[in-house]
């Protein structure tokens, strides 16, 4: 049987758009899927060490930003990094940084959070994604 797979291109670097990345990865792992994540541009910058602590909310939802941050802190909602760590612990989740973005911003793998597995080119991501039925652009 071919292993089912969820692929995600994570382009956005705002907190509200990164939350579902961790949650969808967890759900996919629970339902027996592999997860293949490609971090690019603002999405990759959000995975720089420590960056997750001070991420903005998407412009169109800015009016809700303070309320969202307050609710999340109050109810102790796990961060997207924590959700990704849990998903990685329970299943096969690979998180890759886009090589082009790395070069553009002069980043090295050690500048990124520990959940990032490596650096790949777009060709490798597409090759992996095309074997799966589901690919999301976030």
């Amino acid at each position: 049987m071919v292993q089912e797979r969820l692929s995600m291109v994570v382009f956005s670097g705002t907190l509200d758009k990164l939350m579902p990345v961790g949650i969808l990865a967890s759900g996919a792992v629970a339902m027996g899927l592999e997860v293949n994540i490609f971090l690019t541009f603002w999405g990759l910058l959000a995975f720089r060490k420590g960056a997750a602590q001070s991420l903005p909310i998407s412009k169109e939802y800015e009016a809700m930003a303070e309320q969202m941050k307050q609710i999340m802190a109050e109810k102790k909602v796990p961060s997207f990094l924590d959700n990704l760590r849990t998903a990685k612990e329970l299943g096969n989740v690979k998180v890759y940084a886009c090589g082009m973005t790395m070069d553009l911003f002069g980043l090295k793998l050690e500048d990124l959070e520990d959940v990032v597995d490596g650096v790949v080119g777009v060709g490798e991501f597409i090759t992996t994604a095309k074997e799966g039925k589901m690919t999301l652009f976030i």
């Binding site: 967890s26 759900g27 629970a30 109810k75 909602v77 796990p78 849990t86």
Partner: peptide
């Protein structure tokens, strides 16, 4: 919160 309880159960 979702998917916390399911992930704890799986573990």
């Amino acid at each position: 919160f979702c998917p916390g309880p399911m992930m704890e159960l799986i573990r």
